[in-house]
Every structure is written in structure tokens, then in C-alpha cells.
């Protein structure tokens, strides 16, 4: 019964660009039915408004699902041009093996630790695309009660990020092993 929220999947890490103005990131997919003619376009929010206004029939509007990967790859490309030398290895999460190019390609992260590892890119991408506020709403009971395992997991994950950032992969690997150990044997309450 759930509707698919988009019928349009962008793959391959291409940044979808507005088909109308050719400048902005395409965030909206429009399906226009005018008489018997069905047309599809992907456009930015402001071009979408003009297009829907001009439609002599039904215009159905879909959100682009992996908008994030588009925004991320724009952010990453800008960054690469400034800082990175060609051939330099791409950033990778040592817990799950997901690389920055995987994230750009699929718009998906591989594990909880990825949120720390790729946080600069995520902040840039999501800051532009959606809400940049921090979490409101339900908190797991364990976090609220200050569960020692949960606290330790959060601490290790932040440490993991710093280690990966400074390319200290061996130390990062031992933090990863400690995280795996915690999953099997939680910290005792003291």
C-alpha cells in the first residue's frame, strides 16, 4: 500500500542537474500528463514551480530519492579540486570497508561508524539539502540512562573517526576490534 516515493533513480554518482536551467541540482522529478502525452523531467525547485504552473493537465511531483548522493558528490568534487592530488587513496571506513566513492555512488552508508568517518561530507551534503539541526525526539533508553556500553561505543566511534582522518589505519583497526568485542561482551555496570 505504500507508494514508492520516486519512480526515478539516479545511479552512477552523476550529479543530477536541472534539465531546465542547467545550473542547480535537480531535486524534483515531474511527471506531466497533458492529453495523452506523458513527459518526465528532473528540475530544481524553482524551475519546478514554473513548469507546474505552465502544465495544461496533471503534473505529479516526486522528490529525488538519492538527492544526497548528488549533493555529496558536488561537495566532494569541489573539495577534491582544492585539496586532493590525483591518485591519492579515497577515504574509507575501516569497520565496514565503505569508501567515500561508494557513498557518493549509492547515497548509502555502510555502518554506524561511517557517520563519524564521513561526517564532514554528510554535514555539507545534508546541510544544503535538508535539516541541519541536531536530533530531537526519542532517545534509546540505554542512552538516556547513561548505559556504559553505549557511552563507550560512542566514544570509540569518535576516536575511530579521528584516527581515520589522520590516516592512522593500524590504530583505527584496533579500535574497530574493540567495538566488535563490545558487541559480544557489554561493559559491566559499576
Amino acid at each position: 500500500m505504500f507508494a514508492e516515493e520516486s519512480q526515478w533513480q539516479v545511479g552512477g554518482g552523476d550529479t543530477p542537474t536541472c534539465e531546465s536551467c542547467g545550473r542547480e541540482v535537480a531535486s524534483v522529478h515531474i511527471l506531466r500528463l497533458e492529453g495523452a502525452e506523458l513527459t518526465r523531467v528532473h528540475v530544481c525547485q524553482s524551475c519546478a514551480e514554473d513548469l507546474v504552473d505552465q502544465t495544461e493537465g496533471t503534473a505529479l511531483v516526486f522528490a529525488v530519492p538519492n538527492l544526497l548522493s548528488g549533493l555529496l558528490s558536488r561537495a566532494a568534487k569541489a573539495e577534491t579540486e582544492v585539496e586532493k592530488q590525483p591518485g591519492e587513496p579515497t577515504k574509507m571506513c575501516v569497520v565496514c570497508g565503505t569508501t567515500l566513492s561508494d557513498v557518493l555512488e549509492t547515497g548509502m552508508l555502510g555502518c554506524a561508524a561511517c557517520y563519524e568517518v564521513f561526517s564532514p561530507q554528510l554535514e555539507r551534503g545534508l546541510g544544503a539539502g535538508g535539516s541541519s539541526h541536531s536530533h530531537l525526539g526519542k532517545i534509546p533508553g540505554r542512552v538516556a540512562a547513561g548505559d556504559p556500553t553505549q557511552r563507550e561505543v560512542l566514544r570509540l566511534r569518535r576516536m575511530l573517526k579521528e584516527l581515520v582522518d589522520s590516516e592512522r589505519y593500524e590504530e583505527a583497526a584496533s579500535v574497530r576490534d574493540r567495538l566488535a568485542e563490545l558487541a559480544q561482551h557489554p561493559v559491566e555496570e559499576v
Binding site: L68, G107, M108, Y115, L122, G130, P140, T149, P186
Partner: peptide, 28 residues
């Protein structure tokens, strides 16, 4: 959700909220 949480530790971050495979779905 509360009852499931009794038996497992959910991926959660105070800034991002509940963590999901698609980062644009993280939060609540």
C-alpha cells in the same frame, strides 16, 4: 521498539539520532 531495545543496542548518535543506511533518513 522499547521492547526490542531491551535485547539489543541500537545505532544512535546524539547529533544524528537513530542511524540508518541512507543518511537522509537518520533522526527519529
Amino acid at each position: 521498539d522499547d521492547s526490542l531495545e531491551q535485547g539489543m543496542t541500537f545505532a544512535f548518535d546524539e547529533r544524528w539520532g537513530y542511524l540508518t543506511a541512507r543518511p537522509d533518513e537518520a533522526g527519529t
